[in-house]
Simulated assay, not measured.
Amino acid sequence: MLQLVYVSSANRREAPDPVRILATSRRNNHRDSITGLLYSDGTRFLQVLEGPETKVAEAFARIEADPRHRALVVLSRRTIEAREFGNWDMAHHAPGADADAIIERVAALSANASSDVRATFDGFAKVRRAA
Results as ranks from 00 to 15, higher is better:
residue 78 R to L: 15
residue 90 M to Q: 09
residue 88 W to Y: 13
residue 69 H to V: 03
residue 85 F to M: 10
residue 63 I to Y: 01
residue 63 I to S: 00
residue 61 A to L: 01
residue 66 D to H: 00
residue 66 D to I: 05
residue 67 P to V: 02
residue 72 L to E: 02
residue 82 A to T: 12
residue 84 E to L: 05
residue 85 F to S: 04
residue 74 V to T: 03
residue 81 E to Y: 00
residue 63 I to G: 01
residue 81 E to H: 04
residue 65 A to Y: 07
residue 83 R to V: 02
residue 85 F to G: 02
residue 82 A to Y: 04
residue 64 E to D: 11
residue 84 E to T: 10
residue 76 S to Q: 15
residue 63 I to M: 05
residue 84 E to R: 12
residue 74 V to F: 00
residue 80 I to R: 10
residue 86 G to W: 01
residue 92 H to T: 10
residue 82 A to E: 10
residue 67 P to W: 01
residue 69 H to M: 03
residue 72 L to C: 08
residue 75 L to H: 12
residue 85 F to L: 14
residue 91 A to M: 08
residue 77 R to F: 04
residue 72 L to H: 05
residue 82 A to P: 03
residue 68 R to M: 09
residue 76 S to N: 14
residue 89 D to A: 13
residue 90 M to I: 03
residue 79 T to Q: 11
residue 85 F to K: 07
residue 83 R to Q: 10
residue 65 A to W: 07
residue 78 R to H: 13
residue 79 T to H: 11
residue 71 A to K: 15
residue 71 A to R: 15
residue 92 H to G: 06
residue 86 G to P: 01
residue 62 R to G: 05
residue 71 A to F: 14
residue 91 A to Q: 10
residue 67 P to D: 00
residue 90 M to H: 05
residue 89 D to S: 14
residue 69 H to W: 07
residue 70 R to M: 15
residue 82 A to V: 09
residue 65 A to K: 12
residue 74 V to S: 01
residue 61 A to Y: 00
residue 62 R to L: 10
residue 80 I to M: 10
residue 88 W to N: 06
residue 78 R to E: 14
residue 67 P to F: 02
residue 92 H to P: 01
residue 92 H to C: 14
residue 85 F to A: 04
residue 85 F to P: 03
residue 80 I to L: 11
residue 60 F to Y: 14
residue 80 I to T: 13
residue 63 I to A: 07
residue 83 R to A: 14
residue 64 E to K: 13
residue 76 S to L: 13
residue 76 S to W: 08
residue 61 A to H: 07
residue 63 I to E: 04
residue 81 E to K: 05
residue 65 A to N: 11
